[in-house]
Simulated scan of single mutants.
Amino acid sequence: MDITTEILIDAPPARVWAVLADFATYGAWNPFMPQIFGTPQAGARLRVRIVPPGSGGMTFRPRLLTVTPERELRWRGHLLVPGLFDGEHRFRLEPTDGGQRTLFRHGESFSGLLLPVIFGARAQAATRAGFEAMNAALKRRAESAATA
């Protein structure tokens, strides 16, 4: 099961990355992921709070798999133990218009034995809405910072 969203941001990848990798400021702009604690480096363990629309939210502890500045940030998390309900979250930045704009792709692949029980149509819709809300907020933040 995969959910992928994207948005075009009128700022270069370096600016979008600066916002995305600054975990300490997420509470100021990110409605879907208002808290991330940890260091953006491969192998690091994070503490991430997500709040999908209509949900009380949850906190989990994924491990960063890939940190490629201005290109990709990716982590994998599990519910309790691997194989029950797993998610691999990804953010990809693609330069467009000679590097002046960024195509931001935000998605997650879900798997595990509990996937059909935990992740029905309603949860999928809330997750997609959360991704899109974060994308729009990232766009606003990166574009306002780029023009400031």
Rank of each mutant, 00 (worst) to 15 (best):
I7Y: 00
F119M: 00
T147S: 14
F119T: 02
H106N: 04
G112N: 08
L64Y: 13
G87S: 05
G120Q: 06
E143D: 11
D22M: 04
L8Y: 00
G130A: 08
P69V: 03
A145W: 07
G57Q: 14
R128H: 05
F119C: 02
R49F: 01
L79T: 06
D22N: 09
W17S: 04
L8D: 05
P53R: 11
A137Q: 08
I7T: 05
D10W: 00
G112V: 08
Q35W: 00
R15K: 15
Y26S: 04
R61A: 11
G87Q: 01
L8I: 11
T39V: 15
G98W: 11
G57A: 10
H106C: 01
P13I: 06
R71E: 15
L84M: 14
G38Y: 09
A137F: 07
A44S: 15
G27N: 02
L138I: 06
A125E: 15
S109A: 12
G107P: 10
A11R: 04
F91M: 10
F131L: 07
D10Y: 03
E72Y: 04
A126W: 09
D10C: 10
R63S: 10
A125R: 15
G130F: 07
D22K: 07
A24P: 01
L73Y: 05
T4D: 14
T4I: 09
E94A: 10
E108F: 02
E143C: 11
I50Q: 13
G54H: 12
A126V: 07
F91I: 03
L113S: 12
S55T: 09
R15T: 15
R105S: 11
R101S: 12
F32A: 07
